[in-house]
Design a protein around this nucleic acid. Structure first.
Lengths: 240, 240
DNA sequence: CGCACTCTTGATGGTCATCAAGACGGGTGG
DNA sequence: CCACCCGTCTTGATGACCATCAAGAGTGCG
């Protein structure tokens, strides 16, 4: 059930069987949630964190006029709001973008298992720091990449992250979003996203259609994006 | 010496005297560093974290063509790279923007004190999550605010953060940056920053001159920025 | 079959980048 | 002491990128 989460953790860190048992024991409940459901409202007091088993979620913030900015996408294996364990309330909302299956992990359980295992405490701290690294890359994208490079960078990031949990390969992956949601990730309008997707298709780099990303030329896409996967920390972390 | 760091921590969390002693004991060295020095290169293996005692630092990433994006500013009392404790190497560089005085905290000491005190482990985890919250607000700024609102939001954020360490009040604060560096925070060019500053001055909201931000109308500035300090978690965190 | 949502494309305009040049100001050396 | 120099600031002119507005086509669903 938590295989994808374990795959994600074990890519970077050695995780013992006793730690796996602790994680399994921390899950209070598994829930199915339809698409478009706001799991967490910004500001509400939280007492559980949400582990994504299946589906896509996002963290987003809104402006008063209704403009939305998505700050991060969450794929299976991710905790969507592990940081709520220390923050108690969040500065953003969390929304399901597709139907999701999630595991609910109460904060009291997180307290228990991180006390029981220094290793898990460390690994989960790392995990929230990885979210921050992704945020920084998005800051770079929004601040300095043009629309085409931004889109390319998003596709490169998702390809790399989904590959970790065997949901992508070199040729593509499922991405059941519409162009408006892509725009909300990229700080663009859906109209411009449409034009950019056309340009990527024309350049024979990638095709986005029917919720599927078909990569024609991954190296070319990465070149357009100036993609450097370093920020995803995909390598085994030094034991030290 | 670490009064500002303690003020920052104690705003949000109760910190016992024994924890203070642990923090003090973790400092290996205090260094003075001139402005414009790259403290950390992206990718290098780190074994220490840096606590800012005095001065201003930033985390930044560069594009190949030399364009720079600053992802966060660090003020006295902040750890500039606490996250390197778990990440080992960083996805960004760290630069002094002014002459700085910093305390060097080896990762082995961080390991020691977070093992000795669950409370400190928790508080420092919170601290890195707060950095992530700031990143998210910058994502929102870069994605959805226009140049004027972005600048206003930056000033509001710095006013609030510097007030915590008694380096700002309602009327303003020192900000020894040039317009190019502001542009690197905001995803703009220095030329446009100049025009935006003029507009803010004309509207009688804020004056930036000679490295000092003079706030004429804080409420008005916050309105322009749609500033909501929630993401800075300035309130005492629930004990639970 | 009709409705709602999404996608697509064109036309127009605004925000911000780029290029260029002059002003200002602080520091240095002749 | 003043001339010079360099970094920074300032302003204008022009243009690119992306937003906005609008309308029609495609698609899935009740």
């Amino acid at each position: 059930m938590i295989e994808r989460h374990l795959a994600r953790l074990r890519l970077r860190h050695e995780i013992s069987e006793s730690d796996v048992a602790l994680i399994r024991g921390a899950i209070a409940e598994v829930r199915e949630i339809p698409a478009g459901r706001t799991l967490v409202e910004a500001g509400e007091r939280l007492r559980v964190s949400t582990l994504v088993l299946d589906g896509l979620l996002c963290r987003y913030k809104d402006m008063k006029d209704g403009q939305r900015q998505i700050a991060e996408l969450h794929v299976p294996g991710d905790f969507a709001d592990l940081h709520s364990y220390t923050l108690k309330r969040l500065d953003h909302s969390i929304l399901t973008l597709t139907p999701c299956r999630v595991a609910v992990v109460p904060h009291v359980e997180l307290a228990r298992i991180t006390k029981a295992s220094e290793r898990l405490a460390y690994v989960y701290w790392f995990s929230t720091n990885l979210d921050a690294a992704i945020h920084r890359e998005w800051v770079l994208s929004l601040g300095r990449r043009n629309a085409l490079a931004r889109m390319a960078a998003l596709f490169c990031e998702l390809q790399a992250r989904l590959q970790v949990v065997a949901l992508a390969d070199q040729t593509g992956f499922a991405l059941p979003l519409n162009q408006t949601q892509l725009a909300e990730c990229l700080g663009l309008t859906s109209v411009h996203v449409n034009r950019v997707l056309k340009e990527l298709r024309t350049r024979d780099l990638v095709t986005f259609r029917g919720g599927h990303v078909s990569i024609r030329d991954l190296a070319g896409l990465q070149r357009v994006a100036e993609f450097d996967p370093g920020y995803l920390y995909l390598e085994r972390q030094p034991a030290d």
